[in-house]
């Protein structure tokens, strides 16, 4: 369907851990439609990160197909995957992964620089993204001069500044206290509601799940429960 942002069909990923195969994903069928806010829950080791990574083109499945915004990932080269991530996806990592030698605004701006946008437009959009996340006044500080919550906001600003089709977040609350987590989630929800950003967040934090409109439960590399479906076969 045209509105499907993510389509996974029979996605399988096996890791070779000390010659013992680990079935991280075992034939996942999964679809995310435009404008959804999905939480991907499940115990540690259930395959949440692996699923996010194959959807994000950071990892390749052993079997099965993945389409993101209509593009079949299996057929893309490394460089093409890079370009796709740059143009269509936003990432929020567990560790904020800001570049220490760049200021907050530069940390947001460089993505637009990679996209080749002109300087004036870059500066304007970066500032707007930081403002939207409530850290506009901290634009000139470097990550070392920001608190954990502030850094995560800058990281979210970096993820949304390109207006991605899909925002992928892996344990976005892992390093935040509950107040900051709540603020961040409120923010993600408003991005989802006001801008229609499609969000897929892997988490085992109940608070994150409570903010998502749709909850998907993974177990042993398989989808065990999906609130969008009445029943799972």
């Amino acid at each position: 369907m045209a509105d499907d942002v993510v389509v996974c069909r029979g996605v399988t990923r096996t890791y070779q851990d000390d010659a013992v195969p680990v079935l991280a994903l075992q034939g996942v069928d999964f679809t995310v439609t435009k404008g959804e806010f999905v939480s991907l829950a499940g115990p540690s080791g259930s395959g949440k990160s692996t699923l996010l990574n194959v959807i994000g083109g950071l990892d390749r499945p052993d079997a099965g197909g993945i389409h993101v915004d209509g593009v079949h990932l299996n057929e893309l080269s490394e460089s093409e995957l890079s370009d796709l991530r740059l143009s269509k996806m936003g990432f929020v990592f567990q560790a904020y992964n800001l570049i220490p030698v760049l200021s907050a605004s530069e940390n947001v701006e460089f993505i637009l620089q990679l996209q080749g946008l002109p300087a004036a437009e870059r500066a304007e959009r970066a500032q707007a993204a930081l403002d939207a996340l409530g850290v506009g006044e901290l634009a000139h500080r470097r990550p070392g001069e920001l608190s954990g919550g502030q850094q995560q906001r800058v990281a979210v600003a970096r993820a949304i500044v390109t207006e991605p089709v899909l925002l992928l977040a892996d344990e976005p609350s892992a390093n935040l206290d509950s107040n900051t987590t709540e603020e961040l989630l409120a923010l993600l929800r408003s991005l989802n509601e006001t801008r229609g950003v499609t969000i897929l967040a892997a988490t085992h934090d109940p608070m994150v799940m409570s903010f998502a409109k749709r909850r998907v439960q993974l177990r042993d590399g398989m989808i065990a429960e999906d609130s969008a479906r009445v029943a799972v076969a």
Partner: peptide
């Protein structure tokens, strides 16, 4: 390593 990995993850090409 982390920083370079992040840059690759968000879409910096290997050549860059």
């Amino acid at each position: 390593i982390k920083e370079l990995g992040m840059l690759r993850a968000v879409g910096m090409r290997p050549g860059a």
